[in-house]
Design a protein around this nucleic acid. Structure first.
Lengths: 144, 144
DNA sequence: CAAGATTAAATCGTGCACGATATTTATGAT
DNA sequence: ATCATAAATATCGTGCACGATTTAATCTTG
């Protein structure tokens, strides 16, 4: 009974790890010019979609908890990208909103998307289908 | 000219980020019982495939550099999973090899793969095709 | 209303990821 | 042989991710 190892090339986990790294590597130089990190960019994406979310809502959108988000958001506040304010209705909750600077970066996100599309070097429908498959994969993994 | 933001749900970068997190989340409790982290498990996968690789070779396989690998490997050495030794042919290079303990964990990797397959809840061919698409995606992104 | 339970953020400690730099060993050109 | 260069790890500082715990506000229930 051989217990031959499954090579990296057969591991879905490594495919995801590798692709996620490669994507981060593609974004890094572009984001770096804006003084942004990759997770900070994801926070901006979430806020461009809906401004004024609480830390908990952001966490739900990005699958992160306050132990990760709080320091990250503080750095973004220090960089004048967002404001953080306790909610009046519920003093436990902190509302995160975009500054003018944070809003102004939204235009760049389209350049980035175009750059990714270019890197993919395949037609849009194929890329969209793959994206949906990956989201679906994430959903299945989370459910398990 | 609207500059409407691209929502998270349309971002391939977030799909990968999310799926990678979900996969890590699935592995975490299983690996935790073995005292392993997810990147440490990837190192083991690489070594089960070919034992005795140098730090640089491991880095090439996993897309990591010595600044990440060296401390990680030292922790794995401290946990008696691997040995690190300078090569005699070239004293610059460090060869990483599995201990008995490190080898013995290989059997578990098959359970993990089965667990992932079960979580996917879809037939193997579909999963394999998706894996190849994701590897291909990573390759395109890296080339760009 | 008061006491306990629940919820939302924050804090703390550890490990990973990476840019920049340092250190050590090997190689190459003269 | 010597010196410059290159190569392989290692070190350092910053930021992300997460388990565990803490703090403060709110809700619940007697």
């Amino acid at each position: 009974m051989e217990t031959k190892a499954l090579p990296l090339s057969m591991q879905l986990c490594f495919a995801l790890y590798s692709a996620n790294h490669a994507m981060a590597g593609l974004y890094r130089p572009m984001l770096s010019e804006l003084g942004l990190t990759y997770p900070q960019y994801l926070v901006l994406l979430a806020l461009w979609e809906r401004d004024g979310q609480s830390v908990g809502e952001l966490g739900k959108a990005l699958m992160l908890e306050s132990n990760t988000l709080t320091p990250l958001l503080k750095r973004m506040e220090a960089a004048s990208l967002i404001n953080r304010a306790r909610s009046q209705q519920d003093e436990r909750s902190v509302s995160v909103s975009l500054t003018d600077k944070g809003q102004s970066l939204e235009a760049k996100s389209h350049e980035f998307a175009a750059c990714v599309a270019n890197a993919l070097d395949q037609d849009g429908d194929t890329a969209n289908a793959l994206r949906e498959q990956i989201f679906d994969l994430a959903k299945r993994l989370r459910k398990a």
